[in-house]
Design a protein around this nucleic acid. Structure first.
Lengths: 339, 339
DNA sequence: TATCAACACGAAACCGTTTTCGCTTAATAT
DNA sequence: ATATTAAGCGAAAACGGTTTCGTGTTGATA
């Protein structure tokens, strides 16, 4: 086992000072050609690499960014991470991933762990518990310490920081309009409880499209499901009790699950009933029929978030100006609607 | 913006030495009750938290573990990460995730970045390019430096380190046996190219089951697909050219995609043709019919890998004994076969 | 021959901790 | 009264780098 070599080792071996070695490796003008060559050759031979920790301590910069998300077994978050990784890596940053598992406490603990020097900034999406509680003190503390934060997707207005979202309302609006264009009039919405910022936005876009088209909103056509667990009973009765010819779902799973239920009741898709979901994941692509979705461009979102964060981290002046980038969603047309 | 407070700040303010503050905060016997109380009160008031980087430098321990995987937009890897995160977090470790994107070079670069002090050990699954090349020098260098490595799922025998895999051969064997039990005799396999260690193992399990049952292996019933991209043409002709009554697929996507193709050709599942895939992801659960799969227990695998790594990191003696843990796969029975 | 740059390098401070060791001071034992 | 001990604290080294500021040597110039 050959341990890592340090500047001190090189200095001792070559009988020069540590400072000389450090400068020689940086190709400083101060050091003679001779010495530089000797040092560099030696360093290369023994595969010297500076210790990241020591440099971090000196520079007060870790080149790590902390990503805190509610769940990783989730296509959207996973694509966002990929986008972040891609941009961050290109800029020489590493990504520390922490999972809040939708828990407020875990979110707080994770942030505290990372905020003590481990990272240069945060990219995060709020846990549902946090959004429900409306307690953002952990975020405020971090920003007050001068640690930049970029919030994405599940955000809040109560924290002053950069933000990236897609226009969820627009996405739902586009989808609903699409149904209407295709002659659907009894359009339902399957969503989650309102405390999730995205669900709220999507519901509003859905309503706006209906009202604009003179169809009007019927509360009975809006089904709120508590969690990610499917409730065959409730969806089943929902499908039967209402005369519905199209359903917008706030996620893939709701959509695919409802499609199967509809099919099992003898309904044909998209003739009898059309479906559009959110999140362009594997499920939509390989569903039968394949599912039309509002794509959230997770990877793009990740890249944008990473860029915003790194720009802030690397900017000299700490002007306190924050921006919110709103990405446009796209409709990915597949077989669950006419085309 | 209130910056983080340091030991030095506390020492200056309280007119004691840095050492005294440090000891007082650790409740050292050396320090008087009085001083300890004063220091601790002050520290709490100003929310003092030790700087992780400084501690890392001192202890030569970062409490970070590096996870290098080929892809994150992939259910299996994602569950493994969750398992790692869970265990690591409970032990006070953070997880740095790096994506090789199936590229050898990226894998190397990522490891080099992290190996210079950023992490205490690696958990990784090899990129396909690495397995194809058979070049494991980057792994060997890291282990020679005394950095512990745990390989999972996509492993190699050429590196001496801890490993965790599921018994892929057994999984395929169990699945194939299941087909046979149910009276299927013309059992096909859809797999990827052989260089992936897991594909090889699965193929061997499939063959073993056939031979054991006296059915014999027919090469024409083994379809090798190059990448993750579906090839409708090839799968289509494969389905038609062979008389097949069951297909084992080495992943979910192959299985779900083939099921749809089979259905579109008028075949009924599972009566005419049965399917079993690998990976118990969303796709299998929500497919129509739902897909029977060999579950790889990704989360468990992650936990086991994290435990192995952290045990090694924290063990005093560096005995060079390595173990390979083999997890048992489980058949998750769903509607794509009889039951 | 005295002066002065330029050159090449080293000493030391610093980043924020931990930890060993030594120094005072006062209390106890002899 | 003197020696011994313990309590309470501080100085300093160490982790591995970077960087500022000297400093000694050299050769050229006045």
């Amino acid at each position: 086992m050959k341990a890592k070599i340090t500047l001190k080792d090189i200095a001792r071996e070559l009988e020069v000072s540590i400072s000389t070695v450090s400068k020689a490796l940086k190709n400083s003008e101060e050091i003679s050609r001779d010495t530089k060559e000797k040092v560099q050759a030696f360093a290369k031979l023994y595969n010297y690499k500076p210790n990241n920790i020591a440099i971090s301590l000196k520079n007060k910069r870790t080149k790590n960014i902390g990503v805190v998300i509610p769940d990783i077994v989730h296509h959207f978050f996973t694509t966002v991470i990929r986008g972040i990784e891609k941009y961050a890596n290109a800029k020489g940053y590493n990504v520390i991933v922490c999972l809040s598992e939708e828990s407020f406490d875990k979110e707080v603990i994770n942030m505290e762990m990372l905020a003590n020097g481990s990272i240069d900034g945060f990219i995060m999406s709020l846990s549902s518990e946090t959004q429900q509680k409306g307690d953002y003190n952990h975020l405020k503390e971090v920003t007050e310490q001068g640690i930049p934060v970029v919030l994405f997707d599940r955000i809040t207005n109560e924290v002053e920081c950069d933000k990236v979202i897609i226009d969820d309302a627009l996405g739902a609006y586009m989808a609903t309009k699409k149904f209407i264009e295709q002659g659907k009039t009894k359009i339902a919405l399957i969503t989650t409880d309102d405390y999730l910022s995205v669900s709220k936005a999507r519901t509003s876009g859905y309503k706006k499209a209906l009202e604009e088209s003179g169809l009007g909103v019927q509360q009975s056509r809006i089904l709120k499901l508590p969690s990610m667990e499917m409730d065959e009973q409730r969806i089943g009765t929902f499908l039967e009790s209402q005369e519905i010819d199209a359903i917008l779902c706030v996620n893939e799973i709701f959509a695919v699950y409802s499609m199967r239920l509809a099919q099992s009741k003898g309904l044909k898709i998209p003739e009898d009933i059309s479906f559009i979901g959110f999140t362009d994941g594997l499920l939509s692509k390989y569903a039968n029929p394949s599912l039309t979705v509002v794509s959230q461009h997770g990877e793009k979102m990740g890249e944008v978030a990473a860029k915003m964060l790194i720009d802030k981290v690397e900017s000299e002046d700490d002007e306190e100006t924050y921006q919110t980038k709103i990405l446009e969603p796209t409709l990915v047309i597949r077989d669950s609607i006419f085309h």
